[in-house]
Design a protein around this nucleic acid. Structure first.
Lengths: 129, 129
DNA sequence: ACACTACATGTAGATTCGCTATATGTAGAG
DNA sequence: CTCTACATATAGCGAATCTACATGTAGTGT
């Protein structure tokens, strides 16, 4: 879609290459976060970095997006956090809970269905091909 | 994610089978609509039906979603509409414009990038596999 | 000492799109 | 008449993402 001004701008300044439109990110972010803490706990800043690296730079997310999402996930019981001091700085580390693990599995399944449904409409296969 | 009350409920009553979460639909709807009018003009109600059929029932969208989207698309110049009377009823038919065709191509490209980025984070491929 | 960058966390408020709820009207069947 | 199907429309709500802004520590360079 076309660019728009405001927080949901289609191509904000931070997405300098082929970034993901924030509108399309909606509904997926929580699962993405669960995925990057699946195998080891990480603190917020490291989660932001992991999202960027694993997506090849397409997911370069503002802290204003990620931190409230972590709040939501913890409130929902999908992650649990604890505070540490590392090198003189406080750090809040998040680990996946059992419920979070189940939720991630569920979200992966939903992702498959989502991509199937959208993909079928957006790129219909020719009949009889 | 968990169900929520209000218009953005995760699993509204109308999604009785494997439906698409409205949060994840966001940002994709316009492209979906452009896709179903790509090869022939359709009126609003027929667009809703086509979306449902082509998605295998996963996209069962309320009129309150689709009609404002058609408004947006027409305002943006991606579709053009005209009124007819069919069988004694008025009907508003939408056709894809040249700009809309270009936009649809752009959106298809964005979809590929989007699925790549999200898929890579959500389901990382094992290293050295 | 100061300025700057990196690391690390947090949040108020604006924007936007999808939904619910609601409305209007015609045609056809029972 | 009632009900369903067809067909269109829109006000207002909710919530997630972003921008903008804030705080603080550590390390480097001048």
């Amino acid at each position: 879609m076309e660019n728009r001004t405001g927080p949901s701008a289609g191509a904000p300044a931070r997405l300098d290459s082929a970034g993901v439109d924030p509108n399309t990110l909606r509904g997926h972010l929580d699962a993405l976060i669960l995925a990057v803490v699946e195998h080891e706990p990480r603190h917020g800043y490291a989660i932001i970095e992991a999202l960027q690296e694993r997506s090849g730079g397409a997911l370069d997310l503002p802290t204003g997006t990620v931190y409230p999402a972590l709040r939501r996930l913890e409130r929902a019981g999908f992650v649990a956090s604890e505070w540490d001091v590392v090198g003189g700085r406080r750090r809040r580390t998040y680990r996946l809970t059992r419920a979070g693990r189940a939720e991630l599995a569920d979200q992966r399944s939903s992702w498959l269905e989502f991509t199937r449904a959208i993909g079928q409409v957006l790129n219909p296969r020719p009949q009889g091909a």
